[in-house]
Design a protein around this nucleic acid. Structure first.
Lengths: 250, 250
DNA sequence: GACTACATGATTGTCAACAATTTAAAGCGC
DNA sequence: GCGCTTTAAATTGTTGACAATCATGTAGTC
């Protein structure tokens, strides 16, 4: 298995944690495909997902697609307008803020538990992952780096062993890409090349409060990449964004 | 159904937070009915939920029931065995521990935010709720008290205003009754008559760390009502419990 | 008597056709 | 040309029937 499949592997395991449900197996396949598309930011917010088109594309029945879409809706990845169809979600700024706030608490809890529960093997594995990620960044392969970054967070949660917290984090990171797409700012990314490795250092050293502080700071770096200012572009239907009319201050 | 509908009001609002999805409206109804049944501990873990029977009972199509069951599965309220059916979930001791651990972190986060964000009106409303709950306890109406207790936690999360954390707490408290059913211990309930009111006092006083400590202690009281000892009855199929053969030490 | 093989009944999974609703466009009067 | 009504296409929502799978009970054999 090459590197791409390797990343895909961990992602499927992560998906398995949040939405274990092997429902009908077919709908599971469709669900994960769409979910991965969201994670890779291939689906623009607001896009309509038509049942028949998806059924044809996946070679399945409309009922199967319907079930997959229903699950996507529960994870807030799509919104369902009765009698009109389902559309890729367009999270509001408020929703984005809530997600980041929740993420800070969840990730803080995870690193706190990580200090107690992680084995040497876990740390070694995560270190390798973080190294791969930094190499990808240095090689300008942003796509792969982003993927590895997500995998790092999910695998850390996985290693801690709390299935509930892991599923919560999984839901959060799955919804994040849509927030980024909807509220991206063109400012340069804040320095966060070795955030993950420094967090691992603190965990390995058994320094819970430092690990916690570093993780919260790290989430802050991520949040810096989007603009979720209160009242900025609240409640618009997205047409302004689609036409590139955003960014104008009040 | 007088009482049921009464409590159903606040409960439905809580459900609306977690699973907004008005999918087909019909399946929403079925979903909430089953969810409320779990919350009231009317469904014994392990019970099979047959599609046709539910469809007849609710006067809807099997497809509608199917959709509702799929959502219940995502919330881990039921487990789905392919080609065999869905059964009321039977959470393991490990799952119960994970739920309580996660709950401590989530509730701690909520009270921390509550100190900053709650208005006087919020606190007054919650105080009234807590008082009702204590009166119910004193009147020996355990059922109603339990219901009001759940409502207190959900409404507190609601008042804080973070939809993500609120939905996480909602999922946790919804799954709790099954844990209690599966791992109840007959020990007397620890004193927690005025836990909620004391937490409110700390919040009103702006004492975040005290509110946090009280909430964590409160969750500890709740956890004391079940026995989730490691390795106690791990992985059994539930037959021992059904026959009343549990409780024998190793 | 215990175990295996088989037949039966029940339940879930899949599917295509039909009905209801909405969106878009064409037609028409002003 | 503009606005309203009517018509048509496209899409979602619903229903029932059919196929696949599994549990149960029965007969047969060692």
């Amino acid at each position: 298995m090459s590197e791409v499949e390797q990343a895909g592997d961990t992602r499927d395991r992560a998906a398995g944690r949040a939405g274990k449900a092997p429902s009908t197996e077919e709908s599971q396949r469709v669900f994960e495909a769409l979910r991965n598309a969201v994670l890779d930011q291939r689906l623009p917010p607001g896009l309509q997902l038509k049942e028949q088109a998806l059924a044809d594309a996946f070679g399945v029945n409309r009922a199967v697609v319907r079930q997959a879409l229903a699950r996507l809706e529960i994870y807030r990845l799509v919104t369902h307008a009765p009698n009109r169809g389902v559309f890729v979600a367009h999270p509001s700024a408020a929703e984005g803020r809530d997600l980041f706030t929740a993420r800070r608490y969840i990730e803080a809890a995870i690193v706190e538990l990580a200090v107690e529960r992680l084995t040497e093997a876990d740390i070694a594995r995560l270190r390798a992952l973080a190294r791969q990620e930094r190499q990808a960044y240095e090689a300008q392969d942003v796509r792969r780096a982003l993927r590895l970054s997500v995998d790092f967070h999910l695998q850390l949660a996985d290693a801690v062993g709390n299935t509930v917290l892991a599923s919560f984090l999984d839901e959060i990171v799955t919804r994040m890409p849509l927030v980024v797409l909807a509220h991206r700012r063109e400012s340069p990314p804040t320095c966060m090349l070795d955030d993950h490795e420094r967090i691992l250092d603190a965990i390995a050293a058994g320094d819970a409060s430092r690990a916690r502080a570093l993780m919260i700071e790290h989430v802050g770096h991520l949040e810096g990449r989007v603009s979720l200012d209160r009242g900025a572009q609240e409640g618009d239907s997205g047409i302004a964004r689609l036409l590139g009319l955003e960014g104008g201050g009040p």
